Amino acid sequence: MNQTIETMLSHRSIRHFEDKSLTKEQIELIVLSAQSASTSSYIQAYSIIGVTDPVKKKKLAEVAGNQSYVEKNGHFFIFCADLNRHEFLGEMENKDVIASIESSENFIVSIIDTALAAQNAAVAAESMDLGVCYIGGIRNNLAEVCNLLKTPKRVIPLFGMAVGYPEKLTDKKPRLPLSHIYHENEYEQDASLYKRQLEEYNEFISRYYNERTGGKRKDTWTGQMASMLSNPKRMYMKEFIGKHRFDLK
């Protein structure tokens, strides 16, 4: 096992950071690493916004559900799906690109490109002994976030990433077993096997929470997910995406 794999296997979300800002060099290396990620057909359909203004960070923390680590970290990045520049390049080259950039395909491409870039950024940050935490809570109110960041049409903030020096390391959350995630040649559809794997994972997770909390918590993974998914949230998203000229045609 090499150092890169060790870094990735050691990932955990950090929610408490030292009061220490990242250096300009660290920020640039993280962004350059993000830019080195694969991108579909070289389209590079994303942008990254670094938020340093304490007032903006405080407002973003409130939008995200009063998550203090959105405000208190070494640097806060927001990763955006971005097809705005592609409208400009169509005008520059006198080509009609609107139908293409408003297609479902290129909407998916922009999300994939953004996610790939973000994960490269996360690995780069962790390789520098920094901690990271993805923040999906900014999608609680994207209209407010877009207004705060002054994003144009065809740019949608997808998630944030708090980066900084860990105040303390949290435990790693156990992932699903490899045999449940990895299918060879075709998707495993043996329902009894599928449920048995989930039941075994539930037992493992329940023990993890029990040990971590001194017996105060023993819930299962399927129980957590079922509770979360039975309460739909952010149901405004389809309408919001359409208004920002990601019309999903």
Rank of each mutant, 00 (worst) to 15 (best):
A143M: 12
E144T: 14
V70Q: 04
F88R: 11
A81F: 09
K59T: 13
Q44L: 12
F107Y: 12
G65M: 14
S47D: 04
L83F: 11
E91R: 11
E93A: 14
K57Q: 03
L149G: 09
T52K: 14
R85S: 03
K95I: 06
S103R: 03
Y46H: 05
I138S: 07
A118W: 02
E102M: 05
A121G: 04
A125Q: 09
L148Y: 11
N106D: 04
A61K: 08
S103K: 01
M128L: 15
V55Y: 06
A81W: 08
T52H: 14
H75G: 06
T52A: 11
L130Q: 09
D96L: 05
I43Y: 10
I49N: 02
Y46M: 02
E91M: 10
E71Y: 06
E62D: 15
Q119H: 11
K58I: 01
I78R: 07
I43N: 04
I138L: 14
T52R: 13
A117E: 01
L130C: 12
M128A: 08
L149M: 09
H75Q: 13
A61N: 09
D113Q: 02
I98C: 03
F77L: 02
N120P: 03
H75P: 00
G65Q: 12
A64N: 11
K59Q: 14
A99C: 11
L89I: 10
M128R: 10
V97R: 08
D96T: 07
V97I: 15
A99V: 12
A118E: 00
N120E: 03
G90V: 04
Y134M: 10
D129Y: 15
K58G: 12
V97M: 10
A124E: 10
D129N: 15
A124T: 10
V51W: 03
V97K: 05
A122E: 13
F88Q: 13
A122Q: 15
T114H: 01
A115G: 15
R85A: 05
V97A: 04
G137W: 13
I48E: 00
V123E: 05
N147K: 14
N120H: 15
F107E: 00
Q44V: 09
K59W: 04
N94T: 08
I111Q: 00
G50V: 12
I49S: 04
D53S: 13
C146M: 14
Q67P: 11
S104N: 07
A64G: 14
L142I: 13
S110E: 01
F88W: 13
M128P: 10
K59M: 10
K59E: 14
N120L: 05
K58E: 11
R85I: 01
G74Y: 11
I48L: 03
A124W: 08
A125S: 13
E91W: 06
G90M: 04
E87Q: 09
R85W: 09
S100K: 14
V132F: 02
A118H: 02
G136F: 02
S47E: 05
A118V: 01
A122C: 14
G50C: 07
P54F: 09
P54H: 07
L116V: 05
N147A: 10
K72I: 02
G65F: 13
A143L: 14
N140Y: 06
V132S: 03
S47T: 07
